[in-house]
Nucleic acid binder design. Structure first.
Lengths: 178, 178
DNA sequence: AACGGGCATTAACCCAGGTTAACAATGAAT
DNA sequence: ATTCATTGTTAACCTGGGTTAATGCCCGTT
């Protein structure tokens, strides 16, 4: 009855174990990398770098979560973001094409994939809502409330770049509202 | 070979035809509405209203696209946004639970659902990127470039609220950059 | 023709956040 | 212990966008 057991089985059967040290890069913006990465231990950050050099953090990926560049996979284009280890991390790597093939053959697996994609879409909609409707201060408060397990594993600067403000601005927000 | 034909078939077989006039509401934030709506003709807007009364537009939904509140469906909670017709619209309405049931029974349909969810996730990631990394002016330019077919069907105020700025600010941006 | 409502523009004022820079604190490397 | 790099704080100044309000335009209604 546990969810996603077919996906988990696929990962353990076909996934390739990989280790990364703190600060080590998994892939870079522009690379062609059609894999999904499942985090067994550790912490990753996915981030964009603009043409002017500004870094913006798309997401943090902790144990039990997976990530990969949909753009690279679906559009056969380069990755739209970079992926780096914030802590020493154990990953399971799987070619996305393999997942697609297997899901086309196995209905239970396809159902697991639907669950994963639904969860992803909802997470992204949530974030869209926060940028659209909330102030930087409100986004900060929500982050504290919803990801308390992350706050002592990331720097304040990275939290700022995840929230869409500069590190200086986040320092001011903290002072302002405790 | 055409994509999503199973989903299309399901819609025509089980979908209920509904007509809405301009300005008519399909559902409201907080309502319990577990349907997905496929737009045959017309144009919808999905929007949040904050506790202070500020309206923020989540998305415009034109012919050939579908929408529904994932939050209402997956979490059995109220809709997180409101849906209204910007033009007289013909919709096909389907209980999401029906889609879930049928997808659990039909593997080809499940594959169609995966395609839809992938496309949705990528659209939302794109929007996340724009809010995270681009200025209001850059978001405006991109909107012009990527949705030219919409600009003469929506008001400038609605475009502003979609881009995350006030109508006054968008008027200034237009003046600034042509 | 006259009225009234929504929409876009513009101006004036204010504020949150960006930018730059100085400074302190921490911590890893020699 | 010293050095160097990274991080966080604070200050000064600037700018983009929010707010409010006035004005004019367009359009649909009567």
């Amino acid at each position: 009855m546990n969810t996603d057991n077919h996906l988990a089985k696929l990962l353990t059967m076909y996934g390739q174990q990989q280790s990364f040290q703190r600060h080590e890069s998994i892939f870079c913006q522009g690379d062609d990398d059609g894999h999904i990465y499942f985090v067994q231990t550790g912490l990753l950050k996915a981030y964009y770098v603009s043409s002017e050099g500004k870094e913006s953090i798309k997401s943090f990926v902790a144990e039990g979560n997976m990530i990969g560049s949909l753009n690279s996979v679906v559009n056969q284009a380069g990755c739209s973001f970079s992926l780096v280890a914030l802590e020493a991390s154990q990953l399971l790597r799987l070619p996305f094409s393999l997942l697609v093939d297997k899901a086309a053959q196995s209905h239970p697996l396809a159902n697991d994939v639907i669950q994963q994609l639904l969860a992803l879409a909802m997470k992204k909609e949530q974030r869209e809502f926060e940028f659209l409707s909330l102030s930087a201060e409100q986004r900060y408060q929500r982050f504290l409330a919803q990801a308390p397990q992350l706050i002592d594993r990331i720097t304040q600067s990275d939290m700022a770049r995840y929230l869409g403000v500069t590190p200086v601005a986040l320092s001011r927000i903290k002072k302002r509202c405790g």
